[in-house]
């Protein structure tokens, strides 16, 4: 394994598990969403529809957890800029593309871990994985989605470096992606304009993908995979460019 890839991957994971406060916060937020949507929205849905809402909702919460923690993964780059560790890695005889990907893969691993915790918590609310033989594929899909949003967050963090504004910019980006998607409810009854936005929202494809592998709800699998794959390539390319040009 490439040394830069390994070092960055290892370090991101180590620091995630070492910082207990951050660890707990990262797990409480999805739990809150799960409770609020599961009990709150779930009750009103079940009275009207006939599908099991928790089977529908849980992949959405998993997706949201992964998207949020992954984009915020960019924060660690901003910290490293501010506290100097970035320089130590940039001056080492390694390629920047591996520094970027190592970082993103490390963060992605921790995001997948958070996604799995959400799955586990779902079990207490009546959720069931529809087919255990899909489990490796579930992990793989979570991982790709985590990588996608890590590349997004880290690329943006390479460009901006203000500690205060970065989280607000990320939230500004994520909120519409989250709510103008089928993460929490079906978008079939949205007005035409909003339905169009859902169609160009990459997060919606991520959620469909998760919904298929986790709950077995039908989707256009090929299209979902293509959207995720192409975005990883594009953002990987963009991130590498930005990383190569970064001066500290």
């Amino acid at each position: 394994m490439d040394s830069a890839l390994y070092v960055m991957w290892h370090r991101q994971i180590k620091e995630y598990f070492r910082n207990k406060q951050r660890l707990i916060v990262s797990l409480v937020q999805p739990l809150l969403f799960l409770i609020a949507f599961g009990f709150g929205l779930g009750n009103s849905f079940q009275s009207s529809g006939n599908f099991n809402y928790i089977q529908y909702l849980l992949p959405g919460i998993v997706g949201m957890t992964i998207m949020m923690s992954s984009t915020m993964g960019g924060m660690s780059l901003i910290w490293d800029k501010k506290f100097g560790f970035l320089k130590e890695t940039l001056v080492a005889p390694v390629s920047r593309i591996n520094l970027l990907f190592g970082r993103c893969l490390g963060n992605a691993t921790t995001s997948v871990f958070q996604g799995l915790i959400v799955l586990f918590l779902g079990y207490f609310m009546g959720f069931r994985i529809f087919n255990w033989s899909m489990f490796p594929l579930i992990i793989l899909c979570m991982f790709f989605i985590a990588l996608l949003f890590n590349l997004l967050g880290t690329s943006l963090a390479a460009k901006f470096d203000d500690m205060q504004s970065f989280p607000s910019i990320m939230n500004f980006l994520m909120m519409p992606m989250m709510f103008l998607s089928g993460a929490f409810f079906s978008t079939n009854n949205f007005p035409k304009v909003l339905q169009f936005i859902v169609k160009i929202n990459p997060f919606d494809y991520c959620v469909s993908l998760l919904r298929f592998v986790i709950s077995g709800i039908e989707t256009n699998l090929l299209l979902d995979f293509m959207v995720v794959g192409i975005l990883i390539l594009l953002l990987g390319f963009l991130g590498t460019r930005l990383f190569n040009r970064m001066e500290v």
Binding site: R11, D80, F83, G84, F85, L86, K87, E88
Partner: peptide
């Protein structure tokens, strides 16, 4: 300026 990772 320092460039150590203080959390390590």
């Amino acid at each position: 300026d320092p460039t150590l990772d203080e959390d390590l």
